[in-house]
Amino acid sequence: MVNTSVSLCGVTLKNPVVPASGTFGFGYEFNDIYDINVLGAISIKGTTKEPRFGNPTPRIAECTSGLINSIGLQNPGIDAVIEREIPRLREVYKNPIISNISGFSIDEYVECCEKIDAVDDVDIIEVNISCPNVHNGGMSFGTLPENAEAVTRAVKKVTTKPVFIKLTPNVTDIVSIAKACEQGGADGISLINTSQGLRIDLNKRKPIIANKIGGFSGRAIFPIAMKMVWQVYEAVKLPIMGIGGVASAEDVIEMMMAGATAVQVGAENLVNPYACNDIINDLPRVMEKYKINDLKEIIGEAHK
């Protein structure tokens, strides 16, 4: 028997596979497709202080081995998520819940984290300072080390739950941002959010997406995510949730060898709704193939 369990800041995941925020809704609807209790954890849809409709449509453009999205953080707001969505997920799901929080000011991040701190069903807070699809917020906190540190420090003051900061790849130096988060007291780093991209409709001679530029994700960005997980692992002592283009059990293991403790699956869920389930089912086979008995032992192994 192989051991697939990992630990994130004292939270045990029975396997490292986590559906990424924004690709899995609030989770419970996937329970109609497969038993979501197979999942290591779930990172639920990014939540803001106020309800948001998000950006105008079209919000999606296909690319080779991926897609660009510009959803714009559509969500029912923190109060509805706490009162309605998390309890609905908890009815059908027993494993760790990661609450993903976004904001347009430090005060908004703080207010949401303070509210989530009081929710027993939430195990980890993932602070999204990397959304490329909203103005005056989101990614702007994740592109300057001093801002990243300030957000981290502020939210850490209002919660005792482990705080992971989700970083954007759209920066000149990911390491300086990750270090700033560590300096601010982060418990872990999630990376990467989407890489900015653009597609044009040749018939209309206009960008496909209403908001023009969006966030590119999918299998194509896997090597970019790998490189950033690798760099951040070398620079900080915090556990990493690796995200970006993961589509197979082999990808999970590869990203763990680069330094990820857990791995999030994003765009692949949108093509194959069974993706996380398939990857989890396939993990023991791939572990045996590469003679891995315990997944914990391969975290960052490629650096040795």
């Binding site: 924004g22 690709t23 899995f24 809704g25 609807e29 996937f30 849809k45 409709f53 998000g54 449509t57 079209p58 919000r59 999606i60 453009a61 897609l67 999205n69 959803i71 559509q74 496909i208 869920n269 949108l270 093509v271 709704p273």
Partner: peptide, 14 residues
């Protein structure tokens, strides 16, 4: 509407 997943996960076609 232009869709991402087609089954309600991505909020692409709201």
């Amino acid at each position: 509407e232009r869709m991402g997943c087609g089954f309600g996960a991505c909020m692409g076609c709201s």
